[in-house]
Simulated scan of single mutants.
Amino acid sequence: MLEVSGLRAGYGATEVLRGLDLCVQPGEIVAVLGANGVGKTTLNKVLSGVVSARTGTIRFDGQAITNASASAIVEAGLIHVPEGRKIFPNLSVRENLVLGSYRRGRARRAQNIERVFSTFPRLRERAAQAAGTLSGGEQQMLAIGRGLMAEPRLLILDEPSLGLSPLLVEEMFTLVRTLNQEGLPIMLVEQNVVQSLDLATRAYILENGTVALEGEAATLAADPALRRTYLGL
């Protein structure tokens, strides 16, 4: 579904991604792990067309999207749920969801809203409520629901557990597993190492803008030297 090769990107004179390679196959959950500042969010922004790649290639479902616009990438079905939720606080829950189908999924908007409400019953209860008045967990549900409105072919989730209570983190990871079991490939970008490795098929560990380690998630999780050196466990 997604192939990234030799990707370099940054801001001004600062290079953040330094020749990064990764891929996501159909049906997988791929975890991209690392501490703050290693390039995870920059990677997501480049994949979404918000930040330009300096060199390297990005292919989505066989098509080159390295220099594609953000709107074209959304229309292709590569959907990014950003870190920090980035909901529209003064709009209602329903209005936020409607905006999720602005570029893609418009023809089935009503059915998709119903699907989101079935997945997140609390959003149905708060459909007319201003999104900024929701709890942190409810806002994360809304951000993911808005992403689902675009009928993603690959969903990038950037730190979905950030700022949530342990119980809500567990709910969020259960949701990710359910979406994947329904056939949606997911790239999970997280600092929550233990649960991400438990959930994922494969994992990449970033360090200084490149891939320091990669492999089957279960193998990485079980290796004590790798846990100690790269994951701080």
Score class of each variant (00 low, 15 high):
residue 36 N to S: 10
residue 79 I to N: 03
residue 6 G to P: 05
residue 26 P to N: 06
residue 74 V to H: 00
residue 77 G to A: 10
residue 168 L to D: 02
residue 174 T to S: 12
residue 41 T to R: 09
residue 115 R to L: 12
residue 154 L to N: 05
residue 167 L to I: 04
residue 47 L to H: 11
residue 182 E to I: 00
residue 42 T to L: 11
residue 202 R to A: 09
residue 24 V to C: 13
residue 4 V to Q: 05
residue 136 G to Y: 09
residue 50 V to C: 05
residue 225 A to P: 01
residue 174 T to N: 11
residue 160 P to D: 02
residue 151 E to G: 02
residue 93 V to Y: 00
residue 201 T to N: 15
residue 20 L to W: 05
residue 214 E to K: 13
residue 221 A to W: 06
residue 106 R to F: 14
residue 113 I to V: 14
residue 188 L to E: 02
residue 123 L to C: 12
residue 108 R to L: 12
residue 188 L to I: 04
residue 67 N to P: 04
residue 196 S to K: 05
residue 55 T to S: 15
residue 51 V to S: 06
residue 101 S to F: 04
residue 21 D to T: 12
residue 13 A to K: 14
residue 64 A to F: 04
residue 179 L to A: 06
residue 139 Q to L: 09
residue 9 A to T: 14
residue 56 G to Y: 08
residue 48 S to F: 03
residue 12 G to N: 11
residue 181 Q to T: 00
residue 124 R to H: 12
residue 175 L to Q: 00
residue 219 T to P: 01
residue 140 Q to H: 07
residue 25 Q to E: 15
residue 32 V to Y: 09
residue 67 N to K: 14
residue 110 A to D: 15
residue 154 L to G: 04
residue 188 L to K: 05
residue 46 V to A: 08
residue 204 Y to F: 14
residue 185 P to N: 01
residue 151 E to D: 14
residue 160 P to L: 02
residue 224 P to F: 03
residue 21 D to G: 13
residue 21 D to N: 15
residue 131 A to E: 12
residue 183 G to N: 02
residue 198 D to L: 01
residue 63 Q to N: 09
residue 199 L to M: 02
residue 129 Q to L: 05
residue 14 T to P: 03
residue 132 G to M: 06
residue 169 V to T: 11
residue 206 L to E: 08
residue 194 V to S: 13
residue 54 R to P: 05
residue 32 V to A: 08
residue 69 S to A: 14
residue 78 L to T: 06
residue 51 V to M: 03
residue 69 S to P: 09
residue 18 R to H: 13
residue 200 A to V: 01
residue 90 N to D: 14
residue 84 G to N: 08
residue 82 P to T: 09
residue 19 G to V: 11
residue 21 D to A: 13
residue 34 G to A: 04
residue 192 N to M: 13
residue 150 A to N: 07
residue 149 M to K: 06
residue 71 S to N: 12
residue 145 G to R: 00
residue 211 V to A: 14
residue 198 D to Y: 00
